[in-house]
Design a binder for these strands. Structure first.
Lengths: 203, 203
DNA sequence: GTGGGCTATTGAACAGGCGTCAATAGCCTG
DNA sequence: CAGGCTATTGACGCCTGTTCAATAGCCCAC
């Protein structure tokens, strides 16, 4: 009755478990992704998971890291040289991702706030990568034209803007409240522009 | 050896457990606030906790609700009639609260993202109350002077600004990066002003 | 083709935290 | 000071994470 045990190469097995983890995360929060659930879904014993990932924490971290990689890959900005157009396009891609992966994205954000410092770092670096590439890949000198200066204060405010985007987008996806999609995107990019042009100069 | 059991009135006992819960929350995240820990700290049996709060969820919710009430009470705005001054004072009080209750405030924010809808609602309504009172208590007509119109889109963006404030303030408290306290407060209130004056009109 | 070894895989056992409930014992009232 | 109401207990069952010695699939040498 019981399925005969199947022996796979470590790489294959690890990949299978990681992919399955991300897939299951799209339907439930991280805390509901138990060892039991994954083992049963993968058709393996609980013990095997501990062979590949030291413990539940490590497994969860690996799954979240994989999920952020997916997010990053699926939201590449356009190659428009205008930074504003790049920002707009990137925001559009980001919103699209959230629209089609609402549950998975919620699980991701929640994981970032779960209290585990490593988890937070994983998400924080993903978020940094998302915003950085909008500007870093732009032609040098464009920012200076607008009087934007790269200071710790500016970086802090931009990270704050990211948090705002997360919140607004998640709320809008839940219930748009009659707000037009494009108007939302415009407001968010305009907010960033304003924030950047008026950030305080560091002491 | 064992302490003789002490019989208190339900109200007294409940109050004691709630206060103790908030106190313990200031030193650890919510998920570490186990039944065992609280029972031992309070000098009671685990069973008694289930008599007062149906289960761990309910207990956690009650503790978080109490914590948000404390936050609200400790950050009352000044009675300045000028809405900008009121906002500034309120932000100042809020930052002060976070500075002196960093751990507890972190636990609070994390709880809000924990996935429990009730928890989220508790925190969301506290956040709404914090921002609403800045404007609701202002003299009527001031907002209109600045062309600010109360629309779903505006409310959404203001809630987004709250998320930004949370993020920025927590990051700044962790590591100021040489950013001046007053400059931070100014940037945040200025950001709100800009966001409010340029929010899209709902279709 | 086959026997043997490397190691992927298992499952039973342990730990610790949540939740239940019949039994116990403070405190108040007459 | 006796009796009752009910606040309080503690032992029990269950579920989930974690360990580890035993098992068995796959590949290679012959």
């Amino acid at each position: 009755m019981t399925t005969p045990r199947i022996r796979l190469s470590p790489d294959t097995r690890r990949e299978q478990l990681l992919d399955l983890g991300v897939k299951l995360l799209a339907t439930r929060p991280l805390e509901k992704l138990s060892i039991d659930l994954l083992a049963e879904a993968a058709g393996i014993s609980r013990g095997l998971l501990y062979h590949y990932f030291g413990n539940k924490q490590d497994f969860h971290e690996a799954v979240v890291r994989r999920a952020t990689e997916d997010l990053f890959a699926l939201t590449a900005p356009t190659d428009d040289p205008d930074p504003l157009a790049r920002l707009s396009g990137s925001l559009d891609g980001y919103l699209g991702f959230v629209e089609t992966n609402r549950q998975g994205y919620q699980s991701l954000v929640r994981a970032a706030y779960s209290g585990n410092p490593t988890m937070r770092e994983i998400y924080e670096s993903a978020r940094a990568a998302l915003t950085d590439r909008i500007f870093d890949e732009a032609e040098p000198g464009v920012l200076e034209e607008f009087g934007i200066e790269d200071t710790p204060a500016l970086r802090l405010m931009v990270r704050g803007w990211s948090a705002m985007v997360e919140h607004v987008v998640l709320a809008w996806v839940e219930d748009s409240g009659g707000i037009d999609r494009q108007a939302l995107l415009d407001s968010l990019s305009q907010a960033l522009f304003q924030i950047m042009t008026t950030a305080p100069k560091a002491d």
